[in-house]
Write a protein that binds this DNA or RNA. Structure first.
Lengths: 225, 225
DNA sequence: CTCTTAGTTGAATATTCAATCAAATCTATA
DNA sequence: TATAGATTTGATTGAATATTCAACTAAGAG
């Protein structure tokens, strides 16, 4: 069945690309894992890069169904939904199951320069994930301080996921991932504490540290404080 | 001069590995950028992987001199030292200068499984960076809440750096990096606010949020759902 | 059943890759 | 200056790679 073959190839590629990266994965390995021959693979995909693009596109297509909706269904508390999503991601990291720990960021870092479509697809993935997370953060209402940029915070969750994923791959263990998640939890509990302690933003100007820093190009975000 | 040749090769490799990863960089490209021929490269390095290992080892050797000491010298405020380090890292990201935005994490993610020495070297790099950052956090004394795990927080800084770096490479822009740094700033300002607001740990029982909050990296909370 | 199209096989192909190696050149020392 | 060792050159090698392609098989429609 052709549908099945194509999916088997995508599953195999997704898994191997996650583990070894694009250039570190030979087409022959994808073939072996998928149990097909090269002619089949090239029947469905124009080339190796097209395969990677299809992997990223599929991750993006499945984002809602595989990650966002299950996370939302798993917790009624909007902030806990964020961590339900993190838990699903972690599962993918552990067992290479499709639908979580998607290699979009990794593939984009590798391929965006030579195949911009992949960069755009991955960007869309990140944006949609962050948009949903932002929705949860918005639903938290006054539990987060009024001055919180909830869109930026949602994007940060994704950045941490990507960084922690890479570190865990390097270490061959989920421990770095778990440690990063612990700090993300800290961030959220601090935000909740700040919202309870002060009805005005905790980051008012009067509290800006006075130290001088000699760095070029100050990050855009910090002048808000 | 042999010393010069070896360094030129390492500079070229470091730069190209950062941009393209290990497997995405051909030895021929390193040769062209370094301005040497293949015999020279293999005289100094047993193979491509040995070259990568030397790149990581050099990053680790230079960590203090290239990143940690300059960051420390750039600011007297211990917490601002963290952001001075971030600024130096960002410079490396922008112009590929050796000594910042080191590709240790990237190379470890790619190569640790097939060359464990690289994994260990990169781990050492991360640990030393986090140790120094932890020193700065310790020097901040009561500015951070008493319950803060400063070692975990220091490690988190590194995780964010790695994740943001990867995202910026995918985007071909430093913007994702700057946004992540803005959120890291938020985290620090929240910590300072919490320390001022409460002489007891923010995670004290009286102020415990409905969700269990741990600062020791234990992600157990989401399993409750 | 026949015909057409989709899907599969797997050997072959051209290219790229990391690495080798003999010879030449350079450097430092006596 | 001669010598030994270090360094460099660059053509070559063999393996690995992504991909092609002719032939075959499977599936569906009439």
């Amino acid at each position: 069945m052709a549908r099945d073959t194509r999916d088997r190839i995508l599953d195999a590629a997704s898994r191997l690309f996650s583990e070894r990266g694009f250039d570190g994965t030979a087409v022959a390995e994808v073939l072996a894992l998928a149990g097909v021959r090269s002619g089949s693979l090239y029947h469905f995909f124009a080339g190796k890069e097209a395969l990677a693009e299809a992997v990223v596109a599929r991750c993006a297509d499945r984002l809602r169904e595989a990650l966002l909706d299950p996370a939302e269904a798993a917790a009624s508390d909007p902030l806990e939904r964020v961590f339900a999503l993190v838990g699903l991601w972690r599962r993918g990291l552990e067992n290479g199951a499709p639908g979580a720990a998607d290699p979009t960021g990794l593939l984009a870092a590798e391929l965006a320069a030579r195949r911009p479509t992949i960069g755009r697809l991955a960007e869309g993935y990140g944006a949609r994930l962050a948009t949903r997370v932002r929705g949860w953060l918005d639903a938290a209402g006054p539990r987060l301080p009024a001055g919180t940029d909830r869109g930026e915070l949602a994007g940060f969750v994704f950045t941490v996921l990507e960084g922690a994923t890479m570190q865990s791959r390097a270490a061959g263990s989920v421990e770095p991932f778990d440690r990063a998640v612990g700090q993300l939890r800290l961030l959220f509990s601090l935000l909740e504490g700040a919202a309870r302690a002060a009805p005005v933003p905790v980051t008012g100007k009067a509290e800006q540290p006075a130290a001088t820093v000699r760095t070029d190009g100050d990050p855009a975000g910090w002048r808000a404080w």
